[in-house]
Structures are given as C-alpha cells and as structure tokens.
Amino acid sequence: MTKVLEVVDISKYYIHKTGWLPGKKICALEPISFSLERGETLAIMGETGSGKSTIAKLIAGAEVPSQGDIFLNGQRLDPHNYRQRCQHIRMIFQDALRSLNPETSVGAQLAEPLHFNTDWDQEKKTSHVVETLRKVGLLPDHYNFYPHMLSSGQQQRVCIARAIILEPQIIVADEAFVALDPSIRAQIINLMLDLQQDMGISFIFVTHSAEIVKHIADKILIMHHGRLIEFGTTEALIKNPQQELTKNLLHAESKHNVLTHSTIQE
C-alpha cells in the first residue's frame, strides 16, 4: 500500500501575549509523527484542549506548523502554499451553517473551488456541481438554494460536497457529526463510507464518540496535553490499550448507558 500522508515531527506553539510583557509560549502540540494509507480512516481522540483540532488544522493547512513536515504521496507540502494543498486535502467543520457563505447559493459555493483549480467552461463546472450534489444525496434543485433554506443535515451535506468536489485524497473532519440529529448523523456516516469506497478517499476525523470510532476508524490516535500517547489499529487499541486514558475514551459511553447493559443486549 502507498502512504498518502506522512506527518514527520510536526509541532505547534502559540505565543500568548498579555500586555507589554514578553509573550508566554504555549505548546498546543509537541512533535508528533504518523502516516496514513490510501482509503484509510484515522480517528483522533483526546480530552478537551489536548490538541486534536490543532492536528486537524495543521494537516488541512489552516495553520502553519512551528516545526516539522507533512508529505503527500512522498512530496513535501509547502506550508505557505495553500492552493497546492487545498486540492488534495479538504476540511469539514462542526458548524455547517457557519462554514457556509449565507449570501451565496449552494451551487455557486460549490463551483467556486472549480474556478480556482480547473480551466473548465461554465457548462462543465455546472454539470460537475450537479453531479457532486447527487453524490451527497442532494438534488439538482438545491443548486439555487441558499444555506439557511436547508436543514442541518443538508447543510452538512453541502459541506461534504464542497470537500469532495475537487476529488481530494484526504478529508479532515473536526467534530463534524456532533451537532447532527441521530437519524441524520447515521445518514452522513453512511455517505462518508460510500464516498470512501467509491473515491478511495482517506479520512481523518476528530470525535468524542467511541461508537463512531469503533464503527469507521482503521487507526486511532490518542492525544493528551498536546502529546501523542498512543497510536495503533482500532482493533489493537480496543483489545489491548496501553494507556488508561485510551481505555477510558473508548469505553466511556458504554459505562453509563442502558443500551449496553446486559439485560438489554441478549
């Protein structure tokens, strides 16, 4: 298998400046390394403030690492060349509505990346947008809709459509499922699984939900205070966690829930 993504010793420091005092250096992420293969799904878990979103943003190019390198198919990504990266790595956020432009129609928002990254004519762009809408379970009619006219699940679909329209190799999703209603969340998970199968996309996602992780992740990365404390296959981390935190994160939900109680699960 080929490594789509290789992360080598990336780290992130923030300088907190208070008044005229010299800034205090805050380490959001200590140097970490890992890699991901084509079509693979990586889950990032950890407590609040442990650096999950920082990793997501560094990979997607929304932040520049303080140190370290990221390689895509063996080629080093220039941290300042956002255009180069955004064709291949796309990000989806938790708050779908806020990450869409309220004043632009769905179709126009989806066509935008095509203006910058292709030399297609208008007709070809439109048909590609319509095709992408269909892929995420929306209709051609939605081309002329504005974000506020859509339900939260449909808004998240538009975000996914925008993420896949350039046929990227990697999608990064930061808590993209939490705000969704259960029936819609399952629809979106199914959609991600389908897209992954059809397009061979690799998928990196941040979540608190052990159940989603167990269902879709191939590998899990556990963060604690800006440090990677455990990394391995989903199976290995479930069966044989090396860290107490890993065990906690992967079993937390079931601890206090009737659905997993023995009386119910015959």
Binding site: A186, I189, L193, E211, I212, N257, Q265
Partner: peptide, 15 residues
C-alpha cells in the same frame, strides 16, 4: 441507528 448494537459490523451502512 444508534451504534450500540453488538451486531453492527464495522464499516457497514447503518440502518
């Protein structure tokens, strides 16, 4: 649809 069923196969489409 809530992923708690022990029968849910990883990566299967959720009902």
């Amino acid at each position: 649809t809530s992923l708690f069923s022990s029968e849910t196969k990883p990566k299967s489409r959720l009902p």
